[in-house]
Simulated scan of single mutants.
Amino acid sequence: MLGNESLIAAVIAFGGEVTATPTTADTLMAKSPDQPEVAGIGVHLREKAGKGFVVRVLPNTPASEEGSLQAGDEIVAIAEGEATPVGLAGKDLGDMSSLIRGRVGTEIRLTVISVNGETERVIRLVRGSIEELLVLGQDPLPVGAEAPPLVEFRNLESDATLSLASLDGTMVVLKFWSTGCRPCLRGIDDAYGSPSDVPEEHAVAARVLLVSIDDKIETARKTVESRGWTGGEFVWGGYEASKQFRLPGLPCTIVIDAEGRIEACVLGAAYDAQSEPENAGDSER
């Protein structure tokens, strides 16, 4: 078993907090009680100081197609169609998410303050069926559970395929990230932004993979190249890796022991919605 010092060394590149049961990342997506589809708009939301902030806009969703929502925007109120808006001030994430629930094809209005501090604006969206994109905010695989052995990753540099089954007998640290996750980008910038910054991963005697869950491998490659990340083993897992590992949020690190079982799950540092917006290159919006 890894001790706390080794775990911290394993995740220091993301500035995460060690926890066996990380809190669930919340999304503006939910199942309607009387239909199986996931009816939502495709935005991950986080509460901070009683306010709701956009963390990430998922690709190929109503929010990304509308085009104006971006990471860091504050959603101050939500309304069903032409109904009176309900303010989000002081509400928890459960309450915020419940305001999003509804049928596919129904309209929702968001009152938004942009990350750059512009005046309030109203965005109209139609809920869509986005089941395949509900990949975060899940209950993570429990400690001691067998890691999915058949999940395959593609190396972003060589395009070679790698599976967990091929690493049997080796401790593996998976650091999950995406182009649309600003805390992920900041953490990797700090750890892999230049050759002199590369962390000493050998301190944990593990194979460390930095796994992109971008919807397209080209997006991940462009991000790695444009940000000048070096020294790490960057791979792409996409939606399938997110689903198989039941990621609770991003950034997220999963430690797998030499016997192929989950040793720990680490949810990264909280998103600071008040920080300056960062150009993420070819983002997933």
Rank of each mutant, 00 (worst) to 15 (best):
G144T: 04
I113Q: 13
R56D: 14
T21Q: 14
S158Y: 01
I113T: 15
E107S: 13
K31F: 07
P33D: 05
L7F: 08
D272V: 09
S98W: 04
A83T: 13
A39G: 15
T24K: 13
V235R: 00
T61L: 00
G94Q: 08
A83D: 14
P195V: 02
V38S: 07
D282L: 10
H202Y: 09
E157T: 15
G117R: 01
P277L: 03
V143W: 02
Q274A: 15
P22K: 03
I78C: 04
L134E: 12
S158V: 02
G50D: 04
I41T: 01
A10N: 00
P59H: 07
R261D: 04
C265T: 15
K48S: 15
A273W: 05
G94S: 12
P148Q: 06
A20G: 15
F53L: 06
E74A: 12
P148T: 05
R127L: 06
E284Y: 06
E157P: 08
Y271I: 08
A160W: 03
L99D: 07
G42M: 04
R285W: 13
G40P: 11
V115H: 12
E17D: 12
P142L: 01
E263D: 11
P142S: 05
T61I: 05
V151M: 03
S129R: 13
V86S: 11
R103N: 11
S6E: 14
E263R: 07
G260F: 00
F234C: 05
R182N: 12
A10D: 02
L110W: 10
R56M: 11
W177F: 07
W229M: 01
I108F: 06
G42L: 01
V76H: 03
E157V: 14
E225S: 15
G228F: 08
V211E: 00
I12S: 14
A63T: 06
G231Q: 04
M1R: 11
R246V: 05
V11S: 14
L164I: 01
D257S: 00
G40C: 08
E200K: 10
R127D: 08
G81S: 04
V211S: 03
F176G: 01
P85C: 02
D34K: 09
T179D: 06
G228Y: 09
N4W: 08
D159I: 06
V172H: 08
E17W: 07
E240V: 10
K48Q: 15
E201D: 13
D168Q: 10
D215F: 09
P36S: 04
L162D: 10
Y271L: 03
E17G: 12
R207F: 09
P195R: 01
L28A: 12
I8Q: 12
A79E: 02
Y271M: 08
D92K: 00
P62I: 04
F14E: 10
E118R: 14
V43Q: 02
V112D: 07
G268R: 01
Q70M: 10
N116D: 15
G231C: 00
V57L: 02
A13R: 13
A264H: 12
R285T: 14
Q244A: 15
E82Q: 11
L136A: 05
T24D: 06
S64T: 08
V135S: 09
A264C: 11
T19F: 09
G16A: 10
L156W: 01
G281E: 03
